[in-house]
């Protein structure tokens, strides 16, 4: 990864000229949003006055305010979508290309739903599947890809339906450095989807067994299920367990991993988007530096788990 000092020079030379027109557009978009909100807010006192004096002119004026506000917000919505895409295509692509040359970036693409399901990390299938900011490339001999994902489940209580988030964050897939054929899942002990019943039914349905491992620190933080006791231990060596603990300390309690078809799947819950431009604040150097930090997280995962160590006969 290129040093921050070099990035400053790159930012000043290459990115700043591109950011000038984007910044002008962002301010216009911000104005659209604020105007729309002002019109909507302005309609409230008119509705209130109409409630007191019952004047048809006031009610018409109030509806004109609402309509104008809505028009501004629709315009805002359309233009911010175009702006985000333009920003990602021109700025984020360059930041990624500079930080790690050789990586491919697809702003509109996401990890395939089939791969997400194959990871088996989430016990419920999503009813709504969204994602963007797909990146793929090689880190040494390791192929990897990741994207932002937001998966939701529709919950209905008879009267109302609502959307409940299953996962929101960074979803990462890489070629693991050892050969294996079974399925091993490493879930956080505090994972809310693993209540007593789901633990029992999912392990029964998937023909999985709990794997009890030797590291007390690891056992305190994670619960491991696998269909092959030996293979689970082959993957989760004592040193790998130590690194998984560090990874959880680094990324938070929600981190979970699975090992299927010689791939490793890592889900890291993150509240904010991966490479999203700010709309109501300036996208300055520090903002772009955050994108580099996000990219660094993925490399930290690969380095922490030593995916690039190829000592075990797998090329």
């Amino acid at each position: 990864m290129e040093a921050s000092k070099d990035f400053r020079a790159f930012y000043e030379k290459e990115l700043q000229p591109l950011l000038v027109p984007l910044e002008t557009e962002r301010r216009k978009i911000k104005k659209l949003a604020l105007t729309g909100i002002l019109f909507l807010l302005g309609s409230f006192p008119l509705f209130f006055i109409n409630g007191v004096v019952q004047n048809p002119v006031i009610i018409v004026l109030a509806f004109i305010f609402v309509l104008t506000g809505m028009i501004f917000l629709v315009k805002f919505s359309n233009r911010q979508k175009k702006y985000r895409l333009l920003f990602k295509e021109s700025i984020v692509r360059k930041v990624i290309g500079f930080t790690e040359p050789g990586l491919e970036y697809f702003p509109g693409r996401a990890i395939e739903e089939a791969d997400y399901k194959k990871s088996g990390l989430f016990l419920t299938d999503p009813d709504r599947y969204k994602g963007d900011d797909y990146v793929q490339g090689m880190h040494g001999k390791t192929f990897f890809c990741f994207s932002e994902l937001h998966t939701e489940q529709q919950v209905s209580n008879g009267k109302q339906t609502s959307w409940v988030t299953i996962f929101k964050g960074l979803f990462f897939i890489a070629d693991f450095n050892k050969n294996f054929s079974g399925r091993t899942y490493v879930w956080s002990e505090k994972n809310p989807q693993l209540n007593f019943l789901s633990r029992f039914f999912s392990s029964f349905a998937r023909k999985l067994e709990v794997v009890k491992l030797e590291s007390p620190e690891f056992e305190k933080r994670f619960i491991v299920y696998s269909n092959d006791q030996v293979e689970a231990r082959y993957i989760l060596t004592p040193s790998f367990m130590e690194r998984a603990v560090k990874l959880q300390q680094m990324m938070g309690e929600g981190v979970c991993l699975s090992f299927i078809d010689t791939n490793i799947y890592v889900a890291v819950p993150i509240k904010d988007g991966l490479f999203e431009p700010a709309l109501f604040a300036s996208n300055d150097f520090s903002r772009l530096e955050e994108f580099r930090i996000t990219l660094g997280i993925v490399y930290d995962i690969m380095d922490e788990l030593r995916l690039n160590d190829r000592l075990w006969g797998k090329e």
């Binding site: 050892k178 050969n179 006791q229 030996v230 689970a232 231990r233 082959y234 060596t237 190829r310």
Partner: peptide
Amino acid sequence: QGAINETEEQLAASRRY
């Protein structure tokens, strides 16, 4: 050497099991 390392790790895993 890769095969030996792999076998040693598999052996270590089966011992642990």
